[in-house]
Design a protein around this nucleic acid. Structure first.
Lengths: 348, 348
DNA sequence: CCAGCGGCTGGAAACGTTTCCCGGAACCAG
DNA sequence: CTGGTTCCGGGAAACGTTTCCAGCCGCTGG
C-alpha cells in the first residue's frame, strides 16, 4: 500500500467511499446518516487519522495558539505567570508559545509585529519599559493584545496592572510598625515602570510614617540576586536597620550579603522583598514580601485575552475588536515572614 | 479603499501589476528583473505586507515551531532547560511551544500523539516515568523527538541523559570525605527513572566509602520543598549527620526544617542536593549540589533536534529519518558550597 | 537571417481543510 | 400521483503560499 505521507481527509474519503465534504462533516460532528457516519469513523480510526492543524488554521483563520512574551524566564515571577497562563489557555484548548525578550525593547516590538504573521491568535506581553514606539505598535497590533504592566492612558489595549505603589507603601509601613526607622531601599532601574512605581510607594510610605527620605539609604541597580548583594554591601555604611528591596531577587541577594558579613536577619537588619515569588518562601530566613499577584495577573490576562478572542474570531481590518480597553489592577498583599520580625535584642 | 483583511501576496500582485508568482519569487530572493523586483518591493512595503506563516507552513510542510514538554515549569531545573532550549531554537529561527504535562503520563502520550497534527516540527520531551506505552508511542512518533532522560535500549529516539548514578555517588563521597558517617538519603519517588538512579548512586557511594546501607536513613517521598521538610523531620530520630537529597527542592525543604528546629547547617548536619538549580545558589546556607547539567542537556537536546530537522525536511512515511539514535550523557559535577562544610565542633 | 537558448514571467496546481450551494432522494400531505 | 419539504451528500471554491511548467521575448552564434 502506497503510504504517501500521513492520512488526510482524502484518504478517508476514498476508503469510506464518500466525499471529503462528508468526512469533514462527520468528523466535526455535523449531521449525517448513521451509515455514513459509521463508515467515516471507522476509516478514520483504521488510518489513525489526525487532522492537520495547519490546514485547519489556514481555513479558519485561527491557530489556537497564544503567545506569552516576558523579559526573562529566569525570574520566578514570570514563571508564576507562565504557569497561571498555561493553566487557563490549556483549559480553553489553546497552545502556548513562549518568548523571552531579554528585556530588549526591540524584541518586544518584534513580537508585537509578529502578530501579523498570524502565527498566534493573541499576545500577552510583559514590557519592561513603555516607549512611544510601544504605544504606537500596541495601537497598530494585528490582533488582540493584553499587557501585563502599567500603560499610559489612551492606549487601546487591555491591561492588568500590579499596584506597586500601594505595595511598596505597605512594606514600608510594616517595617515601621515593627520598629525600624532607618529603612533603606534597594530599587531596580528607576526608569522602568515597576522601578518608578516602587520608588513612589517607598517615598509615600516614609511620608506616612513620618520618616525622612534619605538619599544615602537608596540604591538603584539592576534586578537580580547578585545586584542585591552588592547593593546591600554599599548601603551598610549608611547604617540602615531595614532593607526594603524592589523584588525578591534583590532581597535574597541582600540577605545573603548581610548573613555573609555575620549580621543577623532580622535581629540586626530586617529584609523585605516584593513579588512574593517562590524565592521568598525558600529563602532563609523566609522573606517577608509583598504579593503583587503574579499568578493572579497571569490568569487574569489570559482570561481577558480569551475573552477578546471569543468576541470576534479575527479582528478584520485595522480596527480593534470589542469595546473599550479594560484595565484590571491586582491588589497587593503583604506576606509577613521571619525576615522582618521585630529586633529582639536592639543593637547596643 | 476596501480593506478586506491584511494584505496578501495577491494585493501586492495587483498593486505592482505582476503575477503572484513573481511576488513570491521576489520576496524569496529569487531572480527577477530589476524593474519587477523594485515594483514588488515597493508595493509590499506600502501595504505593510507580512507573509502569512500558516499558509507558508501548509505549503512547506514545516511550521518552524518546536515543542518542549516537561513535567512542571515550577521546577527550576526545567526553567533552566527552557532557557537553554529557547536560546538555541531562537537562534535557528524556530518558535517554542511550551507544554506542562504535570508529570501525568497520559499527558505525555498526548503530546507525543499531537506531533501528528503537524503543529510543530519536533518535540523535546522530559518524561518522568517511561512506561511501555511511552516506548510504543516514541517508536510511532510522527516527527523527530528528543527525550531528556534515560531511555531503555532499543527505542529509536535521540536522548540526552544525566548521569544521576555517578552524580549521587559523587555527593556521597564528598560527604564522607568531609567527615560524615551517617548519611541519610531523601529520595523522590523510587519508581521514577531519576529516583531509581539516584538511589543506585547513593548505595554505590556508601559501598565505595565502606559505609553500611541503613534503611532507617532513607526516605522516599515526592519531589518538592514541603516534602523535603517532612522527610527531614522524619529522619532526625535516626540520628543522621548528613542529609543527601535527590534534588534541590528537597534539600531546601530539609535545610529549612533543620534550621527551624534550631539545628545548625552544616555544623550539626550537612545538607546536599542535586541539580544545582538556582535554588542551591540562593539558599542559606548556600547548598552543595550536584550539577547534572540541566542547561547543558537542554541545549544539547535542542541541537540534536535541529540536526534531525535539517537532515530530512519532513520524515515521510512511518520510517524515522536519519541514522541510528544518538545518546549523549552529561557528566555530573559536584558544586561544593557552605552547606557541607566539615563540622567544626563535633557533637558531644 | 534564422535557429536556438536563456532569462523572466504568468497561469495553474498543490498543500489539507471547511463550507457554500445545489441536486437528488425520500417522505409527507393533498 | 404530484408538489412541496426535508434531509444528505457531492462538487467546488476558498484560505495564502510556493513551485512547476510552459510561453514569451530578446540575444547570440552560425
Amino acid at each position: 500500500m502506497p503510504d504517501g505521507g500521513p492520512p488526510t481527509i482524502v484518504s478517508i474519503a476514498e476508503r469510506a467511499g464518500v466525499s471529503i465534504a462528508s468526512v469533514s462533516r462527520v468528523l466535526n460532528g455535523q449531521g449525517a446518516r448513521r451509515d455514513t457516519t459509521e463508515r467515516v469513523r471507522r476509516a478514520a480510526a483504521e488510518l489513525g487519522y489526525v487532522p492537520n492543524a495547519v490546514a485547519r488554521s489556514l481555513k479558519g483563520g485561527r491557530t489556537r495558539q497564544l503567545t506569552f512574551a516576558m523579559p526573562d524566564i529566569g525570574n520566578p515571577v514570570y514563571v508564576a505567570m507562565v504557569r497561571a497562563i498555561q493553566e487557563v489557555t490549556k483549559a480553553a484548548g489553546y497552545r502556548l508559545l513562549l518568548h523571552s525578550t531579554d528585556a530588549v525593547a526591540e524584541d518586544e516590538l518584534a513580537v508585537l509585529r509578529s502578530l501579523q504573521d498570524r502565527t498566534s491568535d493573541g499576545l500577552i506581553l510583559v514590557p519592561i519599559r513603555i516607549t512611544d514606539a510601544h504605544v504606537a505598535a500596541l495601537g497598530a497590533a494585528a490582533g488582540p493584545v493584553v499587557v501585563i504592566g502599567s500603560l499610559p492612558p489612551g492606549v487601546p489595549v487591555d491591561s492588568v496592572r500590579a499596584d506597586s505603589v500601594a505595595g511598596a507603601t505597605l512594606a514600608v509601613r510594616h517595617l515601621h510598625a515593627t520598629g525600624r526607622r532607618r529603612i533603606a531601599f534597594v530599587n531596580g532601574p528607576a526608569d522602568t515602570v515597576p522601578g518608578h512605581h516602587r520608588e513612589l510607594g517607598y517615598r509615600a510610605g516614609l511620608a506616612e510614617c513620618g520618616l525622612p527620605y534619605r538619599p544615602e539609604l537608596v540604591v538603584r541597580t539592576e534586578f537580580g540576586v547578585e545586584a542585591g548583594a552588592r547593593a546591600a554591601r554599599r548601603l551598610l555604611p549608611a547604617g540602615p536597620d531595614a532593607l526594603f528591596c524592589a523584588n525578591d531577587q534583590l532581597a535574597l541577594g541582600a540577605a545573603h550579603a548581610l548573613l555573609a558579613r555575620g549580621l543577623r536577619v532580622p535581629a540586626d537588619l530586617a529584609v523585605a522583598g516584593m513579588d512574593d515569588s517562590e524565592l521568598a518562601q525558600v529563602a532563609w530566613p523566609p522573606l517577608t514580601s509583598v504579593d503583587l499577584g503574579s499568578a493572579e495577573r497571569g490568569r487574569r490576562a489570559a482570561e481577558l485575552l480569551l475573552d477578546r478572542l471569543d468576541g470576534r474570531p479575527a479582528p478584520p481590518g485595522g480596527e480593534r475588536a470589542g469595546p473599550a480597553p479594560r484595565t484590571t489592577t491586582a491588589p497587593p498583599r503583604l506576606v509577613v515572614r521571619a525576615s522582618t520580625a521585630p529586633a529582639t535584642d536592639p543593637k547596643p
